[in-house]
Design a protein around this nucleic acid. Structure first.
Lengths: 358, 358
DNA sequence: TTCCTTATTGAGACCGGTCTCTTATTGCGT
DNA sequence: ACGCAATAAGAGACCGGTCTCAATAAGGAA
């Protein structure tokens, strides 16, 4: 990056000091708002600063103080409105506490996540908020922690990593959602999630390295078991990472000789695609297929019928995680906390008893 | 912010140099990847760096180079998915060119916009991308420009401010959208926008300080005039800044003795609210009311009927604006460019001839 | 009036990099 | 074998702030 950028010369404390006829140290005291300075001198320096239009260089300030006033945030996918709200919650909370936010996207890929963390550490962020995309390889997270920088996990807990964490009650939510379906009479239910895995075929939980996904699947299976569903009628589908993939998965599912009578989508992006496929096949919701999705996305209220959702308070989640981090940043020392934010299920019109069939 | 944070001591070039038994300058050369160093020494230094787990301090690097590798972005409202896509376009483009992004939200308020710009300048961003919320007070933007930092305007042009700008063809888009309605037989049409103004009552264009809004209104009015609508039947509504306000405006509009037979919404957030109010009043789209909105939000395809939209290529817009900025950052000197990205209208099912009435 | 305490201001080191300028080596032509 | 150019490594200044410590001035007690 050999730029011809002719180094922008900006006004420094030294310039202001000269203009005001005081030492650099004194000018710095006034401008940096620390130490003690007489009222007269303060006035002089301020006047000089105004005169020269002085703007503090936060970079230089950060260098000496060791504090950058920046919080690094790594999320899986900003395009997903769930994360959008969460990020907004983080930003608002951070700003009102005087912090800025640098955002990075991992696309749910561990390598991109590691790269993002490396960059943020390089930028000397004061602390990090991460949505870990895997629970297997967390060396980079342990490293953050070891370096003394506060870290808070968002939306996904890591079992063997004891650090501040804010999640929703995924297992319970999935269980309750599934229960609604089984109570309604559904005996063959699919759960579609974005987690990918070589082969796309679900075999057992050992494959699943993302904690929230894992918990949801556990909740789903628990509810299925309680209702006495056959294991072969619990259809767990992985790999809905793109609209195209989601459509293919849904298509395949609905083309079976014994298709599921209900589907649970792990996020609203997936649900939207499912909805489109269903409509394209001229199936009716909820008569031919019941649908429940995680996240109360805006579109779920304007479809016909509106969609029953697991409402995750994304904004609050972001707010909470930011507050936790900021408290650490302010020096609060306490054992790691794991906050679980409750969800609620908003029953709308997308669930009905299945049409009777084999 | 008196933190008890015990300054995190990190490994520096000096530490690596000592470990490798070379001078600081030499270590810096291999670590910073500049200058010439013999292969042997390079190996030694790299080994020492690995050994000590050296991580460069980007802050310090930025201080001397004067370049931070950060692009500052100020948008009106990240929650609006239009901006969401645009920001994603910016981030992706920036990252692949080696830049990071700091995001700030102005909530479409000029004072917050100014504050955001001040903070970003303080952080010594290399360049800025701004969605100006007003075209009246742009002193802070002129200042950025004067300071030698590249600035590119996104989505909204500023007539008297000649700087790189990327917008869509708002005037034309609005005119075409309106034309679709008039051609269909509509004679009383409302245009609802988020721009606020004391009194909320539209009087004339002189009130409108946001260029894209202004252009759209101009396009709207032009099409109405061509179709021979009475000026009093061009209903321009300001102040749809919150869901609540939008609902109120829509309610008031539909409660008139002579309600409009068609509505154009200036963004998808507004349209969503209009849709909800319409449905709540048990009116049918398009039989009782035609609706067109700017921005092809995901929900517009899953309603019954799906909504006709002005498709603004938000991601491309973001990509383009970032590319323009990065070219400047790399030292390209050329007269300011104003790029206008074309939009297209996706005709779906929300427009039909009005039921005949007064 | 003299000494000590307290309030201000100044001088200069430091943060962790980059970069210029020197100095010490090495290699090549003749 | 000698001189000169090219190459590699070292020394130290600098970026723009913060912060410690010393120096000076003013005020109060004895």
């Amino acid at each position: 990056m050999n730029s011809s950028n002719p180094r922008i010369h900006s006004v420094t404390v030294a310039d202001v000091a000269r203009e005001a006829g005081v030492s650099k140290a004194t000018a710095a005291r006034v401008l940096g708002n620390y130490g003690v300075v007489s009222e007269k001198i303060r006035g002089d320096v301020l006047a000089a600063a105004k005169q020269l239009d002085y703007r503090p260089n936060e970079l230089a300030r950060s260098m000496t103080t060791g504090r950058s006033g920046i919080i690094g945030v790594v999320v899986g996918d900003i395009e997903n409105s769930f994360f959008g709200y969460a990020v907004r919650g983080i930003s608002d909370t951070a700003r009102s506490a005087g912090f800025n936010v640098i955002l990075a996207n991992s696309s749910e890929q561990i390598e991109m996540e590691k790269a993002a963390v490396r960059v943020l550490i390089g930028k000397r962020v004061d602390g990090l908020i991460v949505t870990p995309s895997e629970s297997r390889d967390i060396s980079h997270l342990r490293e953050i922690h070891r370096s003394g920088r506060p870290l808070v996990l968002l939306d996904r807990a890591l079992p063997d990593f004891d650090v501040d964490t804010v999640t929703v009650d995924d297992r319970n939510a999935a269980e309750r959602a599934t229960e609604i379906l089984t109570a309604c009479g559904h005996r063959r239910i699919a759960y579609i999630t974005a987690v990918d895995f070589a082969g796309h075929e679900y075999k057992d939980l050992g494959q699943i390295y993302t904690s929230s996904v894992r918990e949801r699947i556990e909740g789903f299976m628990t509810a299925c078991d309680i209702a006495g569903l056959l294991p072969s009628d619990r259809l767990i589908m992985l790999g809905a990472t793109t609209p195209r993939a989601t459509a293919d998965i849904t298509d395949k599912l609905l083309s079976r000789s014994n298709p599921p009578t209900a589907i649970i989508a792990s996020d609203s992006v997936i649900a939207l695609e499912i909805f489109k496929v269903v409509r394209q096949r001229s199936l009716r919701i909820p008569e031919d297929l019941s649908l429940i999705t995680f996240h109360d996305a805006d579109w779920t209220t304007v479809t016909s019928p509106p969609i029953t959702v697991v409402d995750q308070p994304a904004y609050i989640l972001g707010q909470t995680v930011a507050e936790l981090l900021i408290r650490r940043l302010k020096g609060e020392a306490r054992p790691p906390e794991r906050i679980i934010v409750p969800t609620s299920i908003l029953e709308r019109g997308s669930v009905a008893p299945p049409a009777n069939q084999g």
